[in-house]
């Protein structure tokens, strides 16, 4: 499903502040696996995730996702690729704080001009699933951390993605909410999705439904 071949990522190449974030990474993740990327801060987890999601391109090497060479795609196609395949849960949630939950959840679908009825139904099921139905109209900035987290998950699922990428999803949550998040991930895995979670939260390190744990250090695996 996801394959990284000899990936190197260098920031600010050939400049005084050159930064090698990833070095020669080789990686294979199969369909419907849950992978945990662990490593200290600055070890390159987020960088790797953004390469897989085609948000940026590797300096060297090749990434193949679902048969597509995403590392070589043109910008336009990468957007379509993300829209159709990837669900994102960001480190800081990256919700738009001045929009309400509903508006945040539908963001990924807007450019493809969704059918209103189907969309509303889909959003309602998601809101129900994460028990935030009563927060549908609330501005995101007025929600608690846990609620924001759930809005972010709902948003990552609105396009029915095959792959879910979560970057430090529990960094701002207490233990109870983190455990809840883990349960949700388990559910999502049961729905045949491929999941990658980058984290240094020890709660993730001995999950029974986790398929791979990849340890990162200074851009190496």
């Amino acid at each position: 499903m996801i394959e990284c071949k000899n990936i190197t990522k260098i920031f600010n190449q050939n400049r005084h502040n050159e930064q090698i974030a990833l070095k020669n990474i080789n990686l294979k993740i199969k369909k419907n696996e849950l992978t945990v990327l662990r490593g200290a801060s600055g070890s390159g987890k987020s960088t790797l995730l953004s390469l897989i999601a085609a948000l940026s391109r590797p300096t060297k090497g090749e990434i193949i996702v679902d048969g597509k060479r995403v590392s070589k795609m043109l910008e336009n196609s990468t957007a379509m690729f993300r829209r159709e395949n990837i669900g994102f849960i960001f480190q800081k949630y990256n919700l738009i704080s001045t929009l309400n939950s509903y508006e945040n959840i539908i963001l990924p679908t807007i450019p493809s001009n969704p059918n209103e009825k189907e969309l509303t139904r889909h959003v309602d099921t998601l809101l129900e699933m994460f028990s935030i139905t009563n927060k549908k109209e609330s501005l995101v900035k007025n929600l608690s951390g846990g609620e924001q987290q759930r809005v972010a998950i709902a948003r990552s699922l609105i396009n029915n993605p095959k792959i879910i990428i979560a970057d430090e999803p529990t960094a701002n949550l207490d233990k109870k909410l983190s455990l809840e998040f883990i349960k949700t991930m388990q559910k999502l895995k049961q729905q045949n999705r491929t999941i990658i979670i980058a984290t240094h939260d020890p709660l993730f390190f001995n999950l029974n439904f986790c398929d791979n744990i990849i340890e990162m250090k200074d851009g190496h695996i």
Binding site: A53, L55, E75, N76, A79, M80, F81, R82, R83, E84, I86, F88, F90, N94, I96, L107, P108, I110, P111, R155, N159
Partner: peptide, 14 residues
């Protein structure tokens, strides 16, 4: 905000 939209699959055109 624009970065988020692009990450969520919005094209330059959008």
């Amino acid at each position: 905000e624009i970065g988020v939209l692009k990450a969520l699959g919005w094209k330059i055109d959008d």
